[in-house]
């Protein structure tokens, strides 16, 4: 084989290999989705959404309390995490000097990379130990700690994307700085900021590790935020590693519900983001 033919041969082989890599990775997603929808779909029933869990080994029951529990945990975590992250993001983009914002930015990135199980231990130590019992509060604090860095960095990034001329226009009309931020800068970047918040909330909704020893779990309804609270991800974990077939079936159902929740919010959010960036580029 001539040298040129050999080079063309290598070219074809390697380029096809990269295509194979892409095919393998993307087909994984389709397989995951397909298998989960197939298994979850045949396991889902009305009882899953309306009934409490049955005892170990008993057939039937549902995860109504876990669905509500996840909503409570994620809702409270959002109520804590979104304001903190959003306002801190405004500081980084609009008020920052040089050194302190750099530190905050770097720390936020590091917090973002802290393993979720470590965040769980943190929440355990600062909420569960003093209160001496598992609670929705503890779980929400853990989830909020995971949400904050995401919201901070995302808010900052989209505020930075607002053209400087918009700020200068408002300032030159005599608006004070905070009025400029509230009435011009934030509205101009709100779709991107919301996207980031939705993505962040979707991420914490699926977290399991920080909840195992903070909100723990509950066979029954939990009232308020001061009791151990059941959540979908922890239920999936407990049911999947159990030896009971009917619990496996319910784990699939819960997996489908959780994945649908996460993927739908991701697709919706990225839809908003996609329009936002296209408009920015144009």
């Amino acid at each position: 084989m001539s040298r040129l033919a050999w080079r063309n041969f290598v070219n074809k082989v390697m380029l096809s290999l990269t295509a194979v890599c892409t095919l393998l990775t993307v087909s994984t997603l389709i397989l995951i989705l397909g298998y989960l929808i197939w298994n979850g779909g045949k396991s889902l029933n009305w009882a899953f959404f309306t009934q409490l869990p049955k005892g170990p080994g008993e057939v039937g029951g549902g995860m109504a309390n876990a669905i509500v529990g996840t909503a409570k945990l994620v809702g409270l975590a959002s109520a804590i995490g979104i304001p903190i992250g959003f306002i801190a993001g405004i500081y980084l983009s609009e008020f920052g000097g040089v050194t302190f914002p750099f530190i905050i930015r770097y720390v936020a990135d590091l917090l973002n990379g802290v393993p979720s199980i470590v965040v769980g231990i943190f929440a355990y130590a600062i909420v569960v130990l003093p209160l001496k019992h598992f609670s929705a509060w503890a779980g929400s604090v853990a989830l909020a700690v995971m949400l904050i860095p995401v919201v901070v960095r995302n808010t900052e990034q989209f505020l930075q994307g607002v053209p400087q001329s918009l700020r200068e226009g408002a300032l030159s009309l005599g608006a004070s700085k905070w009025r400029t931020i509230v009435t011009v800068v934030v509205p101009a970047s709100i779709s991107g900021i919301l996207t980031g918040i939705i993505l962040g909330v979707a991420r914490i909704a699926g977290e399991t590790a920080p909840l195992i020893f903070t909100s723990f779990g509950n066979q029954f309804w939990s009232s308020g935020f001061n009791e151990p609270t059941s959540s979908l991800p922890v239920m999936i974990y407990n049911y999947a590693i159990s030896p009971y077939d009917d619990w496996h079936r319910q784990a699939w159902a819960a997996g489908l519900v959780l994945l649908a929740l996460v993927l739908v919010s991701n697709i919706l959010a990225r839809g908003i983001l996609g329009r936002g960036t296209a408009a920015n580029r144009a």
Binding site: T25, V26, T28, L29, I32, Y35, L36, N39, S116, L199, A202, R203, A205, G206, E207, T208, A209, P233, I236, Y237, A240, I241, H248, A251, W252, G255, L258, L259, V262, L263, N266, I267, R270
Partner: peptide
């Protein structure tokens, strides 16, 4: 876009799929 969706799938769901497949 699809690959980034893969990154959003919760860890416990990967675990669930892994146990049974």
């Amino acid at each position: 876009f699809m690959v980034e969706l893969l990154a959003a799938v919760p860890s416990v769901i990967y675990g669930l799929l892994a146990i049974f497949t």
